[in-house]
Nucleic acid binder design. Structure first.
Lengths: 113, 113
DNA sequence: TTTACATATCGGTAAATAACGATATGCCGA
DNA sequence: TCGGCATATCGTTATTTACCGATATGTAAA
């Protein structure tokens, strides 16, 4: 049974609002929406394992206009909020959108805002 | 012709995310969704003028658990973001939701997040 | 025209966030 | 096992936010 579609409370929503209350972090989420267009092919992810749409930190870093450390920080804020998910493959960490959480958030807005 | 339904850019969205990245401000917006239930009848607004659903600052203040000055500040942040609108009637300032902006924000999320 | 009340603004302090460079850690290939 | 790369973390400073109490402003009633 598909469940948990509306499993979001106000506290979680506030955490997501915080994550998105920064232009750079919003841009990252948006760029990952069309990863093929916005980033070069992620050779390792394709070879190695099932993590479709994942992009490594350095490629994201090149697009953000912030330092490597800031990019890493921002990615972990987005990860913590649940908007992104990550997978380590070799020396790379790949990040991609968590579409399920994004959908939940969208529904939350429709119902609770 | 009904227009402007998607007239929101990333910058405006970030401002709204900021406004909502605080539990108290989120609560205010939510309480105003059902003003009749959450607040006592607003006598003056009924008598005086067309501002259906408007609630005065002191009534909101009673529910927030923050000081009068903080409540006033938070209301002006929500006003500035466009999520609320206000009208001064006599010595009271009434605030209510701007449903049009909230709808625009919801659509923005659906399209751009 | 005082007085009382509703709201906004001011000035402050503590905490959180933004952002960086430097450094540590972890994983490979030589 | 050593060097090199990718990423994470640490330590820092500047800015913003979260609040508050005190005060100013504006309106209306006595």
């Amino acid at each position: 049974m598909k469940q948990e579609l509306h499993a979001m409370n106000d506290e979680k929503a506030v955490e997501i609002f915080k994550a998105l209350s920064n232009q750079t972090r919003l841009n990252i989420l948006q760029m990952l929406k069309d990863a093929e267009t916005n980033f070069s092919a992620q050779a390792h992810v394709i070879k190695e394992a099932d993590f479709e749409g994942g992009v490594c930190v350095s490629d994201i870093h090149k697009k953000t206009g912030t330092s490597q450390s800031t990019t890493s920080q921002y990615l972990s804020i987005l990860l913590q909020s649940g908007l992104l998910e990550s997978k380590r493959i070799g020396q790379w960490t790949y990040y991609r959108r968590n579409e399920e959480m994004i959908k939940q958030f969208y529904h939350y807005i429709g119902l609770n805002l």
